Measured scan of single mutants.
Amino acid sequence: MDETGKELVLALYDYQEKSPREVTMKKGDILTLLNSTNKDSWKVEVKITVNGKTYERQGFVPAAYVKKL
């Protein structure tokens, strides 16, 4: 869990989004878990840094590609 009590997951593999509802992640990324009720895909939040500014983006990733921490 992070400092706000949200559950975290670790990306086990790289994943490139295939639709606007998904998010891209790299192996080793730590993501905030938002919903894990679907056995196939979990909703997560990723933090992306562009030019020194951090943005948050929500979307789905394959459940088999992440592990709860």
Rank of each mutant, 00 (worst) to 15 (best):
M25Q: 02
K27G: 04
Q58I: 11
L10A: 04
E22I: 02
V46S: 05
F60N: 05
I30C: 07
L69P: 02
S36N: 07
E45A: 15
Y15C: 07
V50L: 11
E7F: 11
G5Y: 13
G5L: 12
T49F: 10
L12E: 01
D40A: 08
E17T: 08
L33C: 06
P20G: 08
K18C: 11
N38F: 07
Y13W: 10
T54C: 13
L69K: 02
I30Q: 03
K67M: 14
K67F: 08
Y13M: 12
I48E: 06
V46D: 00
I30W: 04
T54N: 08
L12Q: 03
S41T: 11
K67H: 09
Q58K: 07
N51H: 09
K47W: 08
L10N: 02
K26L: 07
V50A: 10
K68W: 06
E17C: 13
A64D: 09
K43A: 06
D29N: 05
T54S: 10
K67N: 05
N35K: 05
V44S: 00
I48F: 11
K43L: 15
T24D: 03
T24F: 04
G28I: 04
D2W: 14
V9R: 00
V66R: 00
T4H: 13
K68N: 05
L34M: 06
Y55C: 11
N51S: 08
L12C: 12
T37P: 03
T32S: 06
E3Q: 13
M1N: 12
G28Q: 00
M1I: 13
D40S: 11
E17V: 05
L10R: 08
K39R: 11
E7H: 11
P62G: 03
E7N: 12
M25R: 00
K27W: 04
L33K: 02
G59F: 08
I30M: 05
V46L: 12
V23M: 07
K68Q: 07
R21P: 04
K27N: 03
T49S: 11
K27S: 06
N38S: 11
L8T: 07
P62I: 07
K39C: 12
K6M: 10
E3H: 14
V9I: 07
F60M: 09
E45I: 14
R57F: 07
Q58W: 07
S19R: 06
W42G: 00
K18I: 06
L33H: 00
K47S: 12
D29E: 08
L8D: 01
V9Y: 06
R21A: 13
K6L: 12
G5V: 13
V50S: 09
A63H: 02
D29V: 05
L69F: 09
D14C: 08
K26F: 08
A11C: 14
K39D: 10
E7W: 11
L34S: 00
V50Y: 09
D14M: 04
L31N: 00
L31M: 14
Y55M: 10
E3F: 14
Y55R: 06
K67I: 15
N38H: 09
K47C: 12
L69W: 06
T4D: 12
I30T: 04
E7P: 09
N35H: 05
V66A: 02
S19W: 08
V50N: 06
R21E: 15
T4I: 13
K6A: 11
E17N: 06
S41L: 15
K27H: 04
K47H: 10
K27Y: 04
P20K: 09
V9A: 08
A11W: 03
K39V: 10
T24L: 02
R21I: 14
V44R: 00
M1W: 13
P20F: 07
D40L: 11
P20M: 08
G52C: 06
W42D: 00
D14Y: 03
G5R: 14
N38M: 09
D14H: 05
E3T: 13
E7D: 10
K39W: 07
Y15R: 00
A64G: 09
T49L: 11
V61T: 00
Y15F: 06
G52Y: 03
T54K: 08
L12D: 01
K43F: 15
E7Q: 14
K68D: 03
G59V: 05
V46I: 15
A63K: 06
R57Y: 07
Y15M: 01
K43D: 02
S19K: 05
W42H: 00
V44M: 01
Y55S: 09
Y15L: 01
Q58N: 07
R21S: 14
T37F: 09
K18V: 07
T24H: 03
P20A: 10
V50I: 13
V44H: 00
K43E: 14
L8Y: 15
L33G: 01
L10D: 01
N35E: 14
A11K: 02
D2C: 15
D14A: 05
M1V: 12
K26A: 06
D29T: 06
L10Q: 11
E3L: 12
E22H: 04
Y13E: 09
Q58A: 09
L33V: 05
N35G: 06
L33M: 02
I30S: 00
V44D: 00
K67A: 11
L34V: 10
S36A: 11
E56N: 14
K27M: 06
E56C: 15
V66G: 00
E22L: 03
K67L: 11
N51D: 13
E3G: 14
T4V: 14
E3Y: 13
P62H: 04
A11R: 02
V44P: 00
L34D: 00
K39I: 10
V44Q: 00
E17P: 15
I30A: 01
D40C: 14
T49C: 15
G28W: 05
K6R: 14
M25F: 13
W42S: 01
Y13A: 11
K43S: 05
E17H: 08
A64C: 15
S36G: 10
E45G: 13
R57D: 01
S36E: 12
S36H: 07
S36M: 09
P62E: 04
F60C: 15
I30F: 05
A63L: 02
S19N: 14
V61S: 00
E3N: 14
L10T: 05
K47V: 12
K47R: 12
A11Q: 02
G59I: 05
N38A: 08
R21M: 14
G28D: 04
K67V: 15
L34Q: 01
K39M: 09
M1G: 13
I48P: 00
V44L: 02
V9H: 05
L10G: 00
V9C: 14
I48Y: 14
K67P: 02
D2H: 14
T24N: 05
I30V: 11
V50H: 10
V66N: 01
S41W: 15
A64K: 13
Q58V: 13
Q16N: 14
T4R: 12
Y13P: 01
L10M: 14
R57I: 10
Q16D: 13
G52V: 02
K53F: 13
D14N: 07
G28T: 01
S19G: 11
K18W: 04
A64E: 12
D14K: 03
D29F: 05
G59Q: 02
M1F: 13
E56K: 15
K26T: 07
G59P: 01
Y55F: 12
G5Q: 13
K6H: 12
W42N: 00
Y55W: 09
R57P: 01
G52L: 03
K27F: 04
Y65W: 05
S19T: 12
T37D: 15
E7T: 14
F60P: 00
G52Q: 04
L10F: 08
V66Q: 01
L33T: 01
D14T: 04
N35R: 05
K43T: 06
L8E: 07
S41H: 15
A64H: 11
K47I: 12
R21Y: 14
S19F: 08
T54F: 08
V61D: 02
G59H: 03
E22W: 06
K6F: 10
T49I: 13
L69E: 01
D2Q: 14
E56W: 15
V66Y: 01
E22K: 03
V9T: 01
Q16P: 04
Y15E: 02
S19Q: 06
V61L: 02
V23T: 02
L33A: 01
A64R: 12
L31H: 01
T37M: 10
V9P: 01
E3I: 12
V44T: 00
S41A: 11
V66E: 02
V50G: 04
T37I: 08
V66F: 07
G59C: 08
T24M: 03
K47A: 08
Y13S: 07
V46Y: 09
V66L: 15
G59M: 06
R21Q: 14
D2N: 14
G59W: 06
N35Y: 06
T49Y: 10
Q16T: 14
Q58M: 07
Y65S: 10
G28L: 03
K26H: 10
Y55K: 08
K39S: 10
T49P: 03
T37S: 14
R21W: 15
N38W: 06
L12R: 02
T32E: 07
G28S: 01
G59E: 02
T4C: 15
T32L: 14
K67R: 12
V44F: 03
L8K: 11
A11T: 04
Q16S: 11
M1L: 13
G28Y: 03
K43Q: 12
N35F: 05
M1D: 13
D14Q: 04
V9L: 10
L34N: 02
L34E: 00
K6N: 10
I48V: 12
Y15Q: 01
P20I: 10
K6E: 09
L69I: 14
M25P: 02
N35P: 03
E22N: 03
K53D: 09
K47E: 07
L10K: 06
N35V: 07
L33S: 04
T32W: 11
T37A: 11
E3A: 14
E17W: 06
L31R: 01
K53G: 07
L12M: 08
L33P: 00
T4G: 14
K27E: 05
E22P: 05
V50P: 00
